[in-house]
Design a protein around this nucleic acid. Structure first.
Length: 974
RNA sequence: GCCCAGGUGGUGAAAUUGGUAUACACGCCUGCCUUAGGAGCAGGUCCCUUCGGGGGUGGAGGUUCAAGUCCUCUCCUGGGCACCA
């Protein structure tokens, strides 16, 4: 057969022209009715608008052509779909183009947008361009400014000092992402921090609600988890450590620490404050080694935050001459300044609990600070687990490891009845000291009289069932390590000997014996190598005064109270710094009076336009400061001595509300329309990249909540559903980049195979509803084009009149179509375009097996194809679609579009088919039978008898157990 | 280090959510057609097999009549957070 294909240039261009002429993608936001006059459901489908960087890459295709499948499908399902587009047009690249190549940022941006519009239209995406939003247009940023002013008015935007990243060579402020390992991305010089007065949005005051409201959102848990981690809620307490000077006189100040583990306070052996802590200056007069401390502080200031955390070796300086008091123990503890404590989190000070915090452990080890164990880890004896319903007896106990240096053997007890081996162990009697008890037990059980304590190995709490007493035991153990001084031995009481006899074992024998202490490895490793790590888990309080013996979690509240602390919830989330010392952004709508106080620019002066007479040369100041026009404007409007704000807003502010503007893009009176927001918000589904899971999504949620509280927006969550797409990699499986030379240019592919083939390929590459990554495979595009050609060629089989062959197949056709339509629909709804296309391929293959195809079925095929390959579907629809008469003859004038049809076979009941039931013996397939889906077990058994193996089985073992799942499986188990 | 998500043919991936593992496609192999093939068409393609079957979803156990799917442990890969007390 000769190669028969379609001319994608012609048909794709023609289809797009037709759509434009018909204006079928312009959404009537005030509502639309269907053919029956019923109101259509509104559906707001949103994609992240792009930054106009220049030209379109494969990522853009993936981001925009895929949701378009869904948009087209929804329209066919009778929804009134809003699928808008715009540009996030402020941003750094435009300014860089200005600096590097002397281009006007505005011209550069607008030229890029012009270019990208044409490219995006070539995808055949059904965006409604009539509502296009461009954030750098004064008509848009007027409202960004208006909203900022509203937030400022209500105390949600405020000015304060904050450090910025500063490149001393380029004389410019850098964004965090421009700092690579503490060095400037462009010139490689070391980045410094500079303190500037800047604007913040108080997102932290919404932390709780941003967290809480996540619960009800039907987003994927991974996305929610990422947001939760970003917000970083920690429950804990603030505790005061009063400061005393060298003569232990009260200085009248306290170091307030934040801790999530107030239960460990009895183990706090020092206090650390961050180098930037304001209290440091207060204490300085009393500090004896002030110059050393100052030097440390200065050294830290030079470091960037990243450098501070990169150098894992902890450093710090002790403040000589001042001390803090542990509010629980009243012990004097040293105060350190150390940069492992962050000034920006909690109170900027922590209590050091080396025994139970890994960082403190490391610090204390380096500076030789005491480690006091206050939590005994709990061990359950796996062989004698506590039994439910039994009484629980708690008692103090000791475990003693006695070592004989001469023989290098360890003293153990061999238990006669139980056959196990333990160290010398026993309970502490009423009124007895732990150490006394340990020595007494050694004497009683082994007869040795002279042992010398080497050290205490720590505490544990063992829980087990004591069979001889029929009760559960909690033994709060202290573990001791003794050295045998001499062989002096008393006679051992025969009653003790009857239970167990003392034996001397080597280390190897001990390890081989499997000592009957659940916590054996815990203290044995401490004996061998000392405490080498902090124990951070829960357990029983020890060395904690009146709280001894209680569970740490349970006692937490009482401990906080006893120390005069207060419970607090702390967030990792920081306030949102929105000031940018940049030109190409939305000017912050603030002016300063002659005293330097900020004032919001009144609405009548908005938009507060970006001046054009600026110098982009990096000088260290915001470019706006070089504008004469801006200064004159401020003085003219507000009076002499008034000055402008020179910073512009972070572009994340622009994108935090654009979805509201789409609803009313040209409203000169308001940022959006109340009624339309009520009708269309929240966005039904928001599709975007996983890189925006935290910042953009969180900022937009914050904005929406803040505006909701100001009664400006009717919803408190902007996005009902959120889908993160995957990543398209180069053919080598690497991220596409020019330097790797693995960039796939979509334009060339479109030229060669057509937009439909590229769309189909991207849809087929993998599921769109999860963020995987997919290497590009050129053969795949070709395959998709082949598939489209097959559909094109299939038109030759359209039968003009109903032939006998078609009639017999007709029911089969209908069933195949109804099934395919339902499958494709549910796949599209879940963004599983890959399996939807696979179903389409199966359908086409089935159709190809027939000599002829009824015209109406071919039309149905075109409708199912339309969301994926909108151009070809449109072209073929013109040939064989609605305009074609019952005889299948082509009429030249076709007025409607395939994209205005409705989804076929909706609500069509697929007739009961015979189901294939697998017949198994012992879960191994032995045959299959056909019967009705709801067929009874008797019917199934009757049919199964036709299978020889089953007949044999039923013959020899008629009472074999049968498991029958209708429509699925018939399993004989014997 | 912590928190997620995943590991299925040579490759991208399916699997009605516990019921025939590998649909659909790429690649590869064979054949047909062709002056030709980077075109088209037809067939084959998890492994072993004595052709009866047997094994197989990163690895080891477990639950179940039945496990890619559930449970425990473990090893890799990708993503997020990271001195956040």
């Amino acid at each position: 057969m000769a190669k028969e294909t379609y001319n994608h240039y012609e048909i794709e261009e023609a289809a797009r022209t037709k759509w434009d002429e018909l204006g079928i993608y312009e959404t009537n936001l005030n509502g639309e009715t269907d053919a029956e006059g019923a109101e259509k459901d509104p559906y707001y489908l949103l994609v992240e608008f792009p930054y106009p960087s220049g030209d379109l890459h494969t990522g853009h295709w993936y981001a925009y052509a895929m949701p378009d499948i869904y948009a087209r499908y929804l329209r066919m399902k009778g929804k009134n779909v809003l699928f808008p587009f715009g540009f996030d047009a402020f941003g750094l690249p435009a300014e860089n183009a200005a600096i590097k190549r002397g281009l006007d940022p505005k011209e550069w941006t607008y030229a890029n947008m012009e270019n990208m519009r044409a490219q995006i239209k070539r995808m055949g995406a059904s965006f409604d361009w009539s509502k296009e939003v461009v954030t750098c247009e004064p008509e848009y940023y007027k409202w960004t400014q208006w909203l900022f002013a509203k937030l400022y008015e209500h105390g949600l935007a405020e000015r304060r000092e904050a450090p910025v990243k500063w490149c001393p060579v380029d004389q410019t402020v850098l964004a965090n992402e421009q700092v690579i390992n503490g060095h400037c991305e462009r010139c490689g010089s070391e980045v410094e921090e500079k303190i500037l007065t800047q604007w913040f949005m108080k997102i932290t005051s919404y932390a709780r609600r941003l967290l809480e409201d996540l619960e009800v959102l039907p987003w994927r848990e991974e996305i929610k988890d990422a947001q939760r981690a970003w917000i970083g809620e920690s429950e804990g307490a603030r505790l005061q450590f009063p400061v005393k000077d060298v003569s232990l006189e009260d200085l009248g100040v306290s170091i307030e620490v934040f801790t999530t583990r107030p239960d460990t306070i009895f183990g706090a052996t020092y206090v650390v404050i961050a180098p930037e802590h304001p209290l440091l200056d207060t204490l300085m007069p009393a500090v004896l080694n002030a110059s050393e401390v100052e030097a440390y502080k200065a050294a830290t200031e030079k470091k960037t935050e990243r450098e501070r955390s990169e150098n894992k070796e902890k450093t710090g300086v002790r403040l000589e001459g001042v001390h803090a008091y542990n509010p629980a123990t009243y012990d004097v503890v040293p105060i350190y300044v150390a940069d492992y404590v962050l000034g920006t989190y909690g109170t900027g000070a922590v209590m050091g609990v080396p025994a139970h915090d890994e960082r403190d452990f490391e610090f204390a080890t380096k500076y030789n600070l005491p480690k006091i164990e206050v939590i005994a880890p709990v061990f359950f004896d796996q062989n004698n687990m506590p039994l439910e319903g039994k009484e629980t007896i708690t008692r103090n106990a000791t475990i003693s490891i006695v070592h004989d240096a001469n023989s290098n053997l360890y003293l153990c007890l061999k238990w006669k009845q139980q056959g196990w081996t333990t160290f010398v162990t026993g309970g502490v009697d009423e009124g007895e000291e732990q150490l006394e008890a340990a020595k007494r037990e050694i004497l009683e059980e082994t007869g040795y009289k002279h042992v010398r304590l080497v050290r205490e190995l720590g505490h544990t709490s063992s829980q087990f069932y004591a069979a001889h007493k029929d009760e559960n035991r909690i033994a709060n153990n202290t573990i001791y390590y003794f050295e045998l001084e001499n062989d002096d031995q008393e006679e051992i009481d025969p009653r003790e000997l009857a239970k167990h006899e003392p034996v001397w074992l080597t280390e190897e024998e001990i390890l081989a014996a499997g000592m009957q202490h659940a916590e054996f490895m815990h203290f044995w490793s401490r004996l061998k190598s000392g405490a080498s790590a902090a124990t951070t888990g829960d357990g029983i309080l020890v060395n904690s005064g009146i709280f001894d013996g209680r569970e740490n979690r349970e006692a937490m509240g009482d401990i906080i109270e006893a120390c005069g602390g207060q419970r607090v919830t702390q967030y990792r989330l920081r306030d949102w710094l929105v000031s940018r010392q940049r030109y190409w952004g939305c000017p912050i709508p603030i002016v300063y009076d002659p005293e330097g106080n900020p004032h919001a620019i009144p609405p009548e002066h908005l938009p507060w336009t970006l001046p054009t007479d600026v110098d982009f040369t990096p000088t260290g100041k915001s470019p706006l400061a070089t504008s004469r026009e801006l200064h004159e404007r401020v003085e003219r409007i507000f009076g002499p001595g008034w000055t402008p704000e020179y910073d512009t807003l972070d572009t994340f502010v622009d994108s935090s509300w654009y979805f509201l503007r789409y609803l009313d893009a040209f409203n000169p009176e308001a940022f959006s329309d109340d009624k339309l927001m009520k009708e269309w918000m929240p966005v039904d589904r928001y599709s975007g990249g996983s890189e925006h899971t935290t910042m953009h999504l969180l900022y937009a949620r914050f904005f929406t909540k803040a505006l909701y509280d100001l009664a400006l927006v009717p919803v408190s969550e902007p996005f009902l559903e959120r889908f993160n797409r995957g990543l398209i990699l180069g053919p080598d499986g690497q991220k596409m980049s020019k330097s790797k030379g693995n960039v796939i240019n979509p334009d060339e592919l479109v030229q060669k195979y057509g937009a439909d083939a590229v769309r189909l390929y991207l849809a087929f590459i993998g599921p769109y509803n999860e963020p995987g990554s997919y290497p590009w495979n050129l053969d795949g595009v070709e395959a998709m084009r082949r598939f489209l050609d097959r559909i094109y060629r299939l038109s030759a089989k359209i039968e003009t009149c109903a032939t006998a062959a078609v009639n017999t197949a007709s029911e089969e056709f209908t069933r195949a179509f109804a099934k395919a339509a339902a499958k494709i629909a549910s796949d599209i709804e879940r963004f599983k375009f890959n399996t939807a296309i696979s179903a389409l391929m199966v359908l086409v293959r089935d159709l190809e097996s027939f000599e002829t195809i009824p015209a109406d079925k071919y039309r149905d095929l075109l409708i199912l194809l339309a969301p994926f390959a909108p151009h070809l579907a449109e072209h073929l629809w013109e040939q064989y679609g609605a305009g074609a008469d019952a005889q299948g003859e082509v009429e030249s004038e076709t007025t409607t579009s395939v994209h205005q049809t409705s989804w076929p076979y909706q609500g069509v009941q697929i007739e009961d088919e015979l189901a294939t039931v697998i017949v198994q013996i012992n879960s191994k397939k032995r045959g299959e039978i056909q019967l009705a889906k709801e067929g009874s077990q008797e019917e199934a058994l009757a049919l199964a008898r036709a299978i020889p193996a089953i007949a044999d089985l039923l013959e020899s073992k008629p009472d074999t157990r049968v498991i029958y799942v209708p429509g699925r499986i018939l399993n004989f188990v014997g």
